[in-house]
Design a binder for these strands. Structure first.
Lengths: 138, 138
DNA sequence: TTATTAAATGACCTTTTTGTCATTTATTCA
DNA sequence: TGAATAAATGACAAAAAGGTCATTTAATAA
């Protein structure tokens, strides 16, 4: 479905959110372990998410990653768009550059409704909503 | 959605089928041109599809690729499975190794129905059904 | 103020995907 | 038969994705 970087980003953020809810700020080591993702690659991704405003971090003892409690929780789609761009919505099963209602590929009409369902799911679920319903990270 | 190889394979097969319906057997050059795919990569993919029984070919003057008229047309899913394996059905939005009803990721329940819709589309549409309704390749 | 902890940073490496090319083999037709 | 045509084959190369590592910077606490 998504590339590895996006998957790790989603799992990391959900794990961080779940831990934040318990008053904890997990570090890279813990996050990578809990989400079963490569340690260093996870560090790179977390850094990226922090630079783009999806995460906050603190250095030094007791430091780690956390999510701004003031802002409303970001949607899964927001994270996906940040990490791998808009391609979910422009993606065509047939691989056409500009597949649209005007120039549809032969699967277009059937695919649009599926893509809309996907978009609906990804934009209504948030990091917080997933953190609250995923016991494995709590 | 799919990788490049799969996209080129689908477009090539639909183009070949559409041309076959007009009594023609297109060659690599023509197929790559019509489907806007790289010439040599297309040749490699066509060869692969021929070896795995999805295409027939003839060498020499007047030669080219064609699809067995005796067999029922293969589904889009058949082609996808051949080129990139089963991963469409095991794919988890969250990237979990064994995401299932028993061990669901937090998006599992919402995603399964979307994946089923996708599977339904890909298994009911065939190379022939697409060839017949895609004027661009006729 | 120094040792410790943990994130920040950037260079680098590996694997997979994507794409190219030269040569060989088979077929057709004059 | 031999010239032309077109697929078969396998080696190679480029680009993108995935992943690692060493060093630096910042914060904390003894």
């Amino acid at each position: 479905m998504f590339n590895k970087e996006t998957e790790y980003a989603l799992r990391s953020m959900v794990y961080i959110q779940a831990q934040n809810l318990k008053g904890r700020k997990p570090g890279v080591e813990e996050i990578a372990g809990a989400t079963e993702a490569p340690r260093h690659f996870t560090a790179k991704i977390l850094h990226r998410l922090a630079r783009s405003g999806f995460l906050l971090s603190s250095k030094g003892k007791g430091g780690g990653f956390f999510i701004d409690r003031e802002k409303p929780s970001v949607s899964i789609l927001d994270v996906v768009k940040e990490v791998e761009g808009q391609k979910i919505f422009s993606g065509c099963v047939f691989g056409l550059k500009n597949c649209s209602n005007e120039h549809p590929c032969p699967l277009h009409s059937r695919y649009v409704s599926i893509r809309e369902s996907l978009g609906e799911m990804l934009s209504t679920e948030t990091i917080l909503s997933l953190a609250m319903k995923y016991p494995a990270y709590q």
